[in-house]
Design a binder for these strands. Structure first.
Length: 527
RNA sequence: GGUCCGUUCGUCUAGGGGUUAGGACACCAGAUUUUCAUUCUGGUAACAGGGGUUCGAUUCCCCUACGGACUACCA
């Protein structure tokens, strides 16, 4: 109780003069998933908005879950997203090392400090004994079976065992853990920047393990020690941490760090599209969209999961989309560059409720960003796809093509997929449209058109169109009656940009050849 | 089960004691067009339910329902 009156005020004063420092602290247990990327993004936006620093810390205290390549994947993902780190295991920094496994020696001191102060204790219970305890409590219909102020009295720990036996066990190298001695009854309050005051009774918390028997700290101890040592001012993390946040407050208090305790902001979760549970790594591609920023190959199972990058999402679009999942600027503006996001960002405008994931919106953002790019840049996407097709194309020609196609693509790879007819004559025709639109009259007109193409002194969309109209008029045909047929003849498909522009790009000779081919291949419909 | 968090159109959300409850995506219709797409115009569509407080509640309070998270020597 004695802390409650002044601590918040002191903390407030203290934090006001501190440089904002936030951290993103993933564990390298696999690919970083999209929810993690959003957490990283919000941390980054907040840090930059406040003129502060963002660091990345690898939380690898569970050696059994280490996955090779995961750490590299995290860095590559953040880099692709444009989230820049000020300090990290690879960027270095004043608080190195930034991998908890490399910081291992420093945690025990703090755990022992807690033991000495009477806020933690040694426990020697085996896994079997813990199971038995939980079974017993369950059988006795105890609402929450946990290692706590009541049950600790029945277990093997330094609070129940005689002092000399505890000493003997420790000296003989018997495995032990250090547990936090959570008070029996005490209200623990914490102020969350998104949710306001959250109150939890200490009886709902159990005596969490702080140091594991392998000598590694658990997340709970390690994150408090490191956040304190690294000068973290704001902890922005997922809502799944909210239930254990009071425990963390207790740790700050017992370690004597309450006056510089970071402020907390627990982010609403990213939910599956049906709202049924949070988006998880294990969802892979099951939901019909990637849950990872980059493609990921599981090093053990070899299972491949698709990524946003490889699917054709632009990092700017991906980030803009992600930023709006749970946050909004309160204005009508939808499109934001990273700089604009930083400028507009505030934690107060983060929503409270879980956010369902909607891939449709991500596609829309991608289209917007794609269309905003200059043709010279878009041309690179098309050009990049051509060598493997064994096709040569000048940058100027590619530019013209993407200029015509950009309004109708969602991803960069669509340029080749949707526009291959600029390079390759159709080998088959849309039969439905052919059956409906091809006619003897049309075919006749096309033949004349084809034969007169050679007479044009200038060959471009305008002159070609003029010629076509002339031929059609001579044959008593309307443009609407035959255009679809001509489109099929030249491209094979029913949809696409302005046909005359297509003709201009594929050129006179190719146009003549394609009409010839169509006249013979589609003759069956000319009845 | 227990603890905690949440609930405005199908989805993301704005708003906030008196509003025609606003926008975006998606969807539908019309216009333009040589097709499709784009673009433009218009449209369908929401305050979970019940109690209070109040002249008045979607907004504040309580309860219920529903949803979610957590409940490891994992993070």
């Amino acid at each position: 109780m004695k802390y409650c009156t002044f601590a918040p005020l002191l903390k407030h004063l203290h934090n006001m003069e501190r440089e904002v420092r936030v951290r993103f602290a993933p564990s390298p247990t696999g690919a970083l998933h999209i929810g993690g990327v959003r957490t990283a993004l919000y941390n980054y936006l907040f840090a930059k908005k406040m003129g502060g620093k963002m660091l990345l810390r690898i939380e690898d205290t569970d050696q059994t879950r280490f996955v090779p390549g995961a750490e590299q994947y995290i860095f590559e993902s953040l880099e692709w997203c444009g989230i820049k780190l000020d300090e990290s295991p690879i960027h270095g920094g004043p608080h190195a090392p930034y991998r908890q496994s490399e910081r291992k020696p420093m945690y025990m001191d703090y755990a022992l400090q807690l033991v000495e102060a009477g806020h933690a204790y040694y426990a020697f219970d085996t896994a079997e004994e813990l199971d038995a305890m939980r079974e017993r409590l369950k059988a006795a219909k105890v609402a929450t079976p946990q290692y706590n102020a009541i049950t600790r009295a029945t277990m093997k720990n330094s609070l129940t065992l005689p002092e000399d036996e505890v000493k003997r066990r420790l000296e003989s190298g018997e495995p032990y853990v250090i547990r936090l001695k959570v008070p029996r009854k005490e209200e623990v309050r914490l102020k969350d920047m998104i949710r306001g005051w959250v109150m939890v009774h200490s009886s709902a918390l159990d005596d969490k393990v702080l140091m594991k028997s392998d000598g590694m700290p658990t997340y709970h101890l390690a994150n408090i020690v490191d956040d304190h040592l690294m000068g973290i001012t704001h902890v922005i993390r997922g809502e799944e941490w909210l239930p254990s946040a009071p425990l963390h407050v207790l740790l700050y208090r017992y370690l004597g760090w309450e006056d510089t305790m970071p402020e907390f902001a627990h982010l609403p979760l990213l939910l599956k599209p049906d709202g049924n549970g949070k988006l998880s790594k294990r969802d892979g591609d099951k939901l019909g969209f990637p849950v990872f920023p980059l493609r990921w190959v599981d090093p053990v199972s070899g299972e491949v999961s698709s990524g946003y990058r490889e699917s054709g999402y632009l990092p700017e679009a991906f980030i803009n989309f992600l930023a709006f999942l749970g946050w909004n600027p309160g204005t009508q503006q939808e499109l934001f560059t990273m700089e604009e996001l930083i400028e507009a960002f505030s934690i107060e405008r983060i929503g409270k409720s879980g956010t369902r994931f909607d891939i449709q919106k991500a596609r829309w953002y991608n289209e917007q960003y794609l269309r905003a790019k200059p043709d010279t840049e878009l041309a690179q996407y098309l050009l990049a796809a051509l060598p493997e097709q064994d096709i040569a194309c000048s940058p100027e020609r590619a530019e013209k093509i993407v200029g015509l196609m950009k309004e109708r693509v969602t991803f960069p790879q669509d340029f080749w997929k949707e526009a291959s007819y600029f390079f390759v004559a159709p080998t088959q025709y849309n039969e439905q449209v052919a059956a409906k639109k091809w006619s003897a009259a049309a075919a006749g007109a096309f033949e004349q058109f084809r034969n007169e193409l050679g007479s044009l002194t200038e060959f471009n969309a305008d002159t070609v169109k003029a010629l076509l109209l002339q031929v059609l008029e001579r044959n008593g045909l309307k443009i609407g009656q035959v255009m679809q047929a001509l489109r099929i003849a030249l491209t094979g498909v029913e949809a696409g940009p302005d046909l005359m522009a297509i003709i201009e790009i594929i050129g006179r000779e190719e146009t003549e050849q394609r009409i010839d081919a169509a006249l013979s291949k589609l003759a069956q419909y000319a009845a």
